[in-house]
């Protein structure tokens, strides 16, 4: 069985600071990491490959330095990695991105399952996975918490939604987006890490994918960002400093005094 895992390099949001004056994110000096949800996608593909045989190919679209996240996936055990990188891809929204990724899946060929993380922690749109499925005209199952069964042209998965769990049977090939509930990602092995450090990673550009300039990057992106705003911080909090005992006494006083509801 052939798996493609689509991953993304994102800024480590735990390290992002905010420019107080402009209300925008300061991205300079912020380390880039593998989108945490994508680790679960990689792990899921590796587990099924180990059980059923086949291969795991990990794909990302991004600038040249995005290949770092592909190496992380190879260190975990992915068989191959492909970087989609071209100046023409810059400025892509989720539609242009998924068009490009879908074309890469077609070019890889004979793919049974495409897995992505639920969403990327930078944009938080959760659109890319479903949009790849639409572009390929494949079935899609989003928010998968457990893949129950895979093989013989069929996948059965549990989809966790607000009011319960949907069990969905889908024909292959299929695109799924994965929740953290699905598994616990493994740590890279030493051999995997060494392989990853040496591996030559092929780079596919717009010509390799046979895409028209109007379908990729900024030109292929109908999304227009009109305004970026920081929500008003709710006010009215108080900060008290002191020894824990004193602070506890203060809280008790306030609660008993009816000042806090």
């Amino acid at each position: 069985m052939r798996f493609v895992v689509v991953v993304k390099q994102v800024p480590d949001t735990a390290e992002v600071r905010i420019d107080e004056e402009k209300g925008t994110l300061i991205r300079e000096g912020v380390p880039s990491i593998l989108n945490p949800f994508d680790e679960y996608a990689i792990e899921e593909a590796l587990r099924w490959r180990d059980e059923l045989g086949g291969s795991v190919i990990v794909v990302t679209m991004g600038p040249p330095q995005a290949e770092a996240v592909l190496r992380e996936a190879v260190a975990m055990g992915a068989d191959e990695a492909i970087l989609l990188s071209d100046r023409a891809f810059a400025g892509a929204d989720t539609l242009a991105t998924s068009n490009t990724l879908a074309r890469a899946v077609s070019r890889i060929g004979d793919v049974d399952v495409v897995i992505t993380g639920k969403q990327a922690i930078d944009g938080d749109t959760a659109q890319t996975g479903p949009s790849i499925a639409a572009s390929l005209d494949w079935p899609q199952v989003t928010f998968v918490g457990k893949v129950r069964q895979l093989g013989d042209g069929v996948m059965v998965a549990e989809r966790y939604v607000e009011d319960g769990c949907e069990v969905i049977r889908a024909s292959l090939p299929v695109v799924i987006t994965l929740l953290k509930d699905a598994n616990t990602p493994r740590l890279p092995s030493l051999r995997g890490k060494m392989k990853a450090r040496k591996m030559e990673i092929p780079v596919w550009g717009i010509d390799d994918l046979g895409l028209e300039p109007g379908k990729v990057g900024l030109d292929g992106s109908p999304t227009r960002v009109v305004k970026v705003a920081t929500p008003e911080a709710s006010s009215g909090g108080e900060i008290h400093r002191g020894e824990p005992g004193e602070l506890a006494a203060l809280i008790v006083d306030r609660l008993l005094g009816g000042e806090v509801e």
Partner: peptide
């Protein structure tokens, strides 16, 4: 044999 090189690992 597990290995961690990246801070997250």
């Amino acid at each position: 044999v597990w290995i961690g090189l990246e801070p997250a690992e």
